[in-house]
Design a protein around this nucleic acid. Structure first.
Lengths: 216, 216
DNA sequence: GGTTTCAGTGAACATATGTATACTCTTACC
DNA sequence: GGTAAGAGTATACATATGTTCACTGAAACC
């Protein structure tokens, strides 16, 4: 028999009870993502999600107040994994040279590993639910901010004011997102071509950067 | 009394009967566009559309077999007006210089005059209805093709192979679409800033074009 | 002028939705 | 070991949906 067990409420955090709750919560999120591969967010119903997750409609409310709340969590999750991946990629010392190919490859890998998440973002970025749109746009802004900061390290943009750097960062993010959206909605056989195109487009942008005059 | 009336069936094309039909058809399309400002296409119902248009649900079938068919017509209409506007802009001899600012302005004007159409395109480009996505993507490809052809006239891309020109054209279209999507979903007071950003991004692309080596 | 055509109506259907309420039964706590 | 908590259930509701069918009445045709 176990001699000691956590006694105070604060220490008894994750026990079997909470574990199971978290499990079906994740089941709901995954079920929603699965449905979102075929339909847009505001066309899938609470009941569909619970059906797909294998629970009763009313049990949904034990986890989320709303479908919208579920959607906002999906946004967080989608960007969470992506953010980690990019941060890791940036800290790679080999990143300095061949930054374009490596960055694109990072996004491609993420599309492969988290296809549903990326499709969700592409689909709902301009989708029919205001708060979800806003949440996604906010996350993309944060990305652009981080990227703009990182760009300072590159000699190419030396002397640029922060406004120009942001403009550049937003362009790059836009091209990346477009590439991802392109990939999740196309025949995998055509992916190599599409990836190369994105790389060339970013190379073109880089060349433009070299010629940019920071003055006004 | 009217002495003569068109007699043959072929000449009796547009009479009061067909006119009225066309009228309520347009009413249906406009109603759908209105609803699409707030929701995504696959979340609005046939009944909603007819309610908004002021007719009976069953009358819908006199005009479209399906909501999907209605959606495909919306895609055509949305691009129809845009295509005309751009063709006009390109034929303008003043276009040669200051092409960037004029192109962007053309898109901005179109966003102002056909906001609902542009929002529809932005929303459904990656939306939940396959055939509509495909239709929009096809239209955008046609745009890129036309643009790639037009670009040949600019000395900047002299000596480029058609593949590189297409890559460039697709980048430009992407930036334009992103700008439009940005405008239709933001506070009008912020529009000037956003327009300027798009212009600067296109200028950056142009600079990149100057430095691009057509070899390989 | 009489007949045909057909855009729009009205009622009915089977089925789906979000949510409220009262419940069960396992786990966590003292 | 007895009790409280709470994740998931079962039932029920008012309301919405797409589509059917038989209809009406005005315009179009001969």
């Amino acid at each position: 028999m176990p001699a000691s067990r956590p006694r105070t409420r604060t220490h008894t955090r994750a026990r079997s009870r909470d574990e199971h709750k978290e499990l079906t919560r994740q089941a709901l999120l995954r079920a929603a993502l699965r449905l979102l591969s075929r339909n847009s967010f505001d066309s899938i119903s609470l009941r569909e999600v619970t059906r797909e997750a294998g629970i009763t409609p009313t049990a949904f409310y034990r986890h989320f107040e709303d479908m919208e709340e579920l959607g906002l969590v999906l946004v967080e999750d989608s960007f969470g994994s992506l953010r980690g991946m990019l941060r890791e990629a940036r800290s790679d010392p080999a990143m300095a040279d061949d930054a374009i190919r490596r960055s694109v490859q990072t996004v491609v890998n993420h599309v492969n590993d988290h296809e549903a998440h990326m499709r969700f973002i592409a689909r709902e970025r301009h989708g029919g639910v205001r708060r979800i749109r806003r949440a996604i746009e906010r996350e993309l802004e944060l990305f652009a901010n981080e990227l703009a900061l990182d760009l300072s390290a590159f000699p190419i943009v030396h002397g640029w004011d922060s406004d120009d750097r942001r403009m550049l960062a937003e362009l790059i993010v836009e091209v990346m997102v477009a590439a991802a959206a392109d990939l999740v909605d196309s025949d995998p056989a055509t992916h190599p071509t599409r990836v190369k195109r994105a790389e060339r487009q970013l190379r073109l942008v880089t060349l433009g950067t070299l010629a940019w005059r920071p003055k006004r």
